[in-house]
Design a protein around this nucleic acid. Structure first.
Lengths: 349, 349
DNA sequence: TCCCGAAGTTCGATTTAAATG
DNA sequence: GCATTTAAATCGAACTTCGGG
């Protein structure tokens, strides 16, 4: 292992000078260019890499950010992770990664481990499960910049990044409306999930503004569940039930893509052709959405951008902290985007 | 921050004694039980947590393992990541995570950053892209235990964990054969991907043993590509081409699930019903496989187990290293599993 | 005033050699 | 000499102080 001492010996300067030059410390302006050059050259030749532990021990930056995901298995979050990774990379941060597995105890233990490693910031990807209050209190107790992705939080110290759910809900229903659909079934998400409520209010607002009637008997909720993939089966059953009630509908608006795909399966099984006899629209634009037959029309969440934005927020907050400026947490709502594929069509007359 | 000094003050002993007791060092047997009790109590009361940086600085363990993924976006690797995470968690390791983005330069930079953090071991998830030779040399230069998942490597110092591809290929073809299929199209993976070759040799071996004829005109290769998701489109085109040639086939064996789903789309588009007119079988058992209509029959890779095994191998190697024992790298082949869903059926006469 | 160096201190935990009764 | 405990050195970087030219 090459240390400052080695560089000092090789370059003929003292450890102090080496440290000053290599860190571009204020005192470096008193050093001659020649000295700087020689020191840098020696460092490079020896392949000197400052020991991160020694730096961190001195309370300098740890150059790492904690990334806590609630469920890596959820297809929704892989692109978010890429966005996070990508942007952290650009800013030379390394990420300490943890999959909380939707378990509170894991979350807490990981949080502690991350704090021990002195992460400079924390990004929580809160897919699916409800984040309970105590857990947020945990996040608030420590004083490091925290951003939560895909969930809005009303707290003093935590920023949020998420898609504009209300607007997204509106885009979905409007797309169906524009295609001429008037009898629309809505498969809402679990009641405990806030996203679902927001999307629903976007839907309702649009309906009200256009005098579209949404039959309450055609509006059903997914059950609460800790498993994101379970919603596929649940959606299948709910849709099958819906069909049995013999209430006509020409389109189905689903809470998310997995739900939509489940619904599509139920319709196909019942001999109903998509989109000729029934249109389907999802939400998220998960990878699997383009793999279905027909390919799923959906409202895309800009997941990679969400990840990138999260990193920008923490990194701003970190900078603010180190410069002793204030940084009040913000909520960033990113615009969703309608992706028209082949699961929606003009209504048959 | 509570330090040893605080514990020492509170308990009335010296820092040294505190350290000795709390770490159960050899010298601890000379300390009175009473002293031990009081020290432990004080530490507990103060909520003392040893500073990881200080420990690591002294060359003790860093308690972290690097996890390098070539492409997080690939649905294939999320379950592997979960397996890795899960097992690392059990062993109290924290993971430093990086997404190499299929780029060599990123890989190298991340590798360097990880080494700076003194990761005790390294796990590389080599989905899709070919790992080039130089890169392996990089892995070999440093002396930390390394395991590569999903790729077999003939090197002195790197262990491998992967599915038994050859056997998996055999299982796939045998399933089709058992259903009565004799005219089978095979969509192989890119030539540069070793997995594909191994699966193919399993297929050929089975064919030979049963006198099944595989028409070379029905065997096509996916093009090499840096993007895992591109294979969906490629498979679609290849299958469409195949259909145009008017060579009859009653089943299609695809390199992996994404490929299979692409092929399924092409068949559906051409008005061919799956599985009634053509059976399809995939490989991997990605999440999307159960979402297609009909649900995809496939050969499952035990991805979570692969991740877990990788961790076990590094952790064994780390232990061996710290006890100055030898640990020669091994290759672990995990058994695939046939998952029969609804995309395969008995051949029509 | 400008340029540079030597030496010492700090961070927190571990480990050694040494000192106490 | 023995059982117990402790002071001091160590790890590597960074910053401070003082001092010389």
């Amino acid at each position: 292992m090459v240390t400052v001492r080695d560089v000092a010996r090789k370059s003929g300067f003292s450890v102090g000078s080496v440290s000053i030059v290599l860190n571009n410390a204020p005192l470096a302006r008193y050093m001659s260019d020649e000295a700087k050059r020689r020191i840098k050259e020696a460092a490079h030749k020896l392949g000197y890499k400052p020991n991160q532990f020694a730096r961190s021990l001195r309370g300098i930056r740890s150059h790492s950010v904690g990334v806590m995901v609630f469920d890596v298995t959820d297809p929704f979050c892989t692109l978010i992770i890429r966005g996070i990774e990508n942007t952290l990379y650009e800013q030379s941060y390394l990420s300490i990664f943890a999959d909380a597995h939707n378990e509170r105890s894991r979350f807490e233990r990981y949080l502690e481990m991350m704090l021990e490693r002195r992460v400079e910031g924390l990004i929580v990807v809160a897919n699916w499960l409800v984040v309970d209050i105590n857990l947020l209190a945990d996040l608030e107790r420590h004083r490091i910049p925290t951003v939560i992705v895909a969930r809005q939080i009303q707290r003093q110290s935590v920023s949020s990044v998420l898609v504009d759910n209300e607007n997204g809900g509106r885009m979905a229903i409007q797309h169906l409306y524009d295609l001429g659909h008037r009898q629309i079934a809505v498969l809402r998400g679990p009641k405990a999930v806030e996203d679902s409520g927001l999307r629903w209010s976007g839907i309702r607002r649009f309906a009200k503004s256009t005098n579209l009637k949404l039959d309450p008997r055609l509006t059903v909720d997914l059950p609460d569940s800790p498993d994101a993939n379970y919603s596929f089966e649940a959606a299948q059953h709910l849709t099958a039930d819906l069909l049995q009630r013999k209430l006509p509908f020409t389109a189905l608006l689903a809470y998310d893509d997995v739900t939509a795909i489940g619904a599509m399966r139920a319709l196909t099984n019942a001999g109903i052709r998509v989109p000729e006899q029934c249109s389907i629209i999802g939400f998220d634009d998960v990878a699997a959405a383009s793999f279905t037959s027909p390919a799923l029309t959906t409202v895309r969440q800009p997941m990679q951008a969400m990840g990138a934005t999260a990193v920008q927020l923490v990194s701003e907050a970190i900078r603010a902290g180190s410069e002793k400026r204030d940084f009040s947490p913000v909520t960033r709502l990113l615009a969703p985007e309608l992706v028209v594929r082949h699961s929606t069509a003009i209504v048959r007359r």
